[in-house]
C-alpha cells in the first residue's frame, strides 16, 4: 500500500480482490453505460419519455 495515512486496515483480502477483478468491474461499467444508451435510443424512437433510473 502506498498511502500511509490509511486509518482503517482495508484488509488484505478486500484489497487484493479489488485488484484482481478491477478489469472486470471497469468493463462491466462500460457495458452498462452502452446498454443504457441503446435503451435510451429505442425509448426515444418509440416516443417514450426517457426515465432516469431512480437513485
Amino acid at each position: 500500500m502506498s498511502g500511509m495515512n490509511m486509518y482503517l486496515d482495508p484488509g488484505s483480502g478486500s484489497y487484493l480482490l479489488q485488484l484482481l477483478i478491477a478489469g472486470l468491474l471497469g468493463g462491466l461499467l462500460l457495458l452498462r453505460m452502452y446498454w443504457a444508451k441503446v435503451k435510451g435510443f429505442f425509448r426515444k424512437l418509440f416516443g417514450k419519455q426517457v426515465d432516469e433510473e431512480p437513485e
Binding site: 488484505s12 483480502g13 478486500s14 487484493l16 480482490l17 479489488q18 485488484l19 478491477a22 471497469g26
Partner: peptide, 23 residues
C-alpha cells in the same frame, strides 16, 4: 479472499496491478 490472503503483505502480492478510476 479474506481467508486466503489473511495476514499477507499486499505489496508483495499485488504484482504491479492497479485500480483505475474506471474500475
Amino acid at each position: 479472499a479474506q481467508r486466503r490472503y489473511a495476514g499477507e503483505v499486499v505489496t508483495e502480492r499485488r504484482g504491479g496491478r492497479a485500480m483505475s478510476t474506471q474500475a
